[in-house]
Simulated scan of single mutants.
Amino acid sequence: MSQHAHSASLMPALAEPPSNRQRTFLRYYTGTLIDLVVLGLFDEFSDNVWVHSFSIALLAAIVLQALLKLTIGIEHWVLGFISSDGWMKVVKLFVAWIILFGSKFVILEALSFAFGDKVRFEGIFHGIVWLIIVVVVMLAAEEIVVRFYRRLA
């Protein structure tokens, strides 16, 4: 058997493109793993972020991924009701900022409720600054991975 025939026999007969549900799963799965890595690195290298164990970090990454996606969904939904004409652009920007900034307090409370003292953000303003830093790094890391992935096409 030739090399080409051998490698072709290892491939499926029909390669089907992924469904929307499969793409959504992969997006959240990848985002959760990125969040886990970022949270783990902050836990290891910062005195202001502390996670009790790897399994707690994994659960916290899942919660963070869900809450961040929920926040972005709410932001887009609310902003859909505000026009982008003239000075309303400023209102739209302010509302987006309020939602995104305010959500960090909700996220911090949700993490505290779900994990108690097993996940802690400490420092300025009861840890909210470090939570914001971690979330911004998570979002930046996700964006970098997405851009890298798109360049592979």
Score class of each variant (00 low, 15 high):
I62T: 07
D47A: 15
L36F: 10
S19R: 10
F42H: 06
F115A: 00
L39P: 03
V135L: 08
A153R: 13
W50P: 00
Q3P: 12
I74P: 05
S7Q: 04
R151H: 08
S19T: 12
Y29S: 10
F42P: 03
S46R: 11
S2T: 10
W50M: 08
E122L: 09
L64I: 14
R21A: 15
E44V: 06
R23W: 11
G80W: 00
F94M: 05
A60V: 11
H6N: 13
D85G: 13
G73P: 14
E122M: 08
I82E: 00
L100D: 12
F105V: 11
K118A: 11
S19P: 01
E44Q: 06
S46V: 06
Y149I: 10
I56K: 13
K69T: 10
L39H: 02
G73F: 06
L100Y: 08
P17V: 12
V51K: 00
D117N: 14
L131R: 01
V91G: 03
G102L: 07
V51H: 01
I99F: 03
I34R: 08
A141Y: 04
H52I: 03
L139A: 11
G102Y: 07
T30W: 09
S19G: 05
D35M: 11
V134E: 02
A114W: 12
L64K: 01
L67A: 13
I74E: 11
L41R: 04
N20F: 10
N20G: 06
V90R: 10
K118I: 02
I99H: 02
I133P: 00
R120T: 06
V95K: 01
A13C: 05
F148S: 09
I56H: 12
L68G: 05
M1I: 06
V137D: 04
V63W: 02
A5K: 14
V38I: 08
L70F: 12
D35G: 10
I144C: 13
L139W: 06
S112G: 13
R120E: 05
H52K: 15
R151V: 07
E75F: 05
A61W: 03
L131H: 03
S19Y: 02
D43E: 01
V63D: 00
S46Q: 06
I74C: 07
V146G: 05
V134S: 03
G127K: 02
L64N: 07
L33V: 10
S84L: 10
R23P: 01
W87D: 12
E109W: 13
L79D: 00
I132T: 12
